[in-house]
Amino acid sequence: MTGWLLPLLRDRAIRLLWLLPLASVGLFTLVSLAPIDPVQAYVGARVALVGPEQREAISAAWGLEAPAYERFWLWARNAMSGDLGDSITFNAPVVQVIADRFPASIALVGAAFILSFVLGTALGLIAAARRGCWPDRIIRGVAVVLAASPGFWIGLLLIAVFAVGLGWLPPCCATPPGMIADEVDLAARLPHLVLPVIAVSVVGISPLILHTRQRLVAFLESPAATHLAAHGARPLWLAFGPGMRHAMGPAITVHLAGAGELFGGSVLAEAVFAWPGLGQATVRAALGADAPLLMGIALATLIFVFAGNLLADIAARLLDPRLGTEARQ
């Protein structure tokens, strides 16, 4: 049954081995071509206080005089020994910046992952079980609207309605203002999580609704379902009994493979909600031409998305025995 697992893991490990260097070269090229001067970005508003000599000193300290390929080579050698360099916007080692901000991001993306999965599949199953009737039409309408709505815009609407208008939930940040993370308990943190999670979830819900619905409808209209119905199976039993596996396999695959999109959505949502995660750090790093931090975050995201895709493949094979056979051949 799981004879395909080891070859799959081996193939993916090999793929990661050439994907990481390739992505590093591509990323570094983009970062070096960016029309932002890191020294200028660093100096910012203090431009009047910093003279040309100091600028040159900063530039020299950061090693910006060297040609791009030399800087890349230096970075790559250090990266291979586990040192991703220092962030110039946060004045701290890249690894530490990522480690500090990763928990906030994973809480946001993880909660959004679960919320969008539960909502998306549940709505998809209901739409398929009641296909052609009003619940189906409403749910499909919702899916189209959600698919067309940018996450950051939903975020702004949520803030306008629930934070500013109704005052039910805080509009920003991971903790109440004026308090540091250590002195806040979970109950105080949760309200801060609600709106950002909803905004990030939006990206993932509509593909799930449509996939789940489509797969379940395909099963419900298949000869196999007709065969069961001819022997007394009720439509709802078909949908939530044997049909479940037909719908859930693709749903889990689509959702895990789409984890990258959730991560991408979280960059914008973190900016809107001032969420102290990796997304916000990415925006700051990009505006400050902070090459080491950008490279570090990008590679961490790459591994994250890669792991999501790998889990999707494993889940798909576990849930559909026909795929396992193909992999063996």
């Binding site: 000869p223 196999a224 007709t226 065969h227 069961l228 022997h231 007394g232 044997p242 596996r245 025995p321």
Partner: peptide, 18 residues
């Protein structure tokens, strides 16, 4: 329903995921 058993002609009457 259920009083008559039917063995259909098509082999796709079997559920591929069970």
């Amino acid at each position: 329903r259920g009083g008559i058993a039917l063995a259909p002609q098509g082999l796709d009457a079997l559920d591929p995921l069970a």
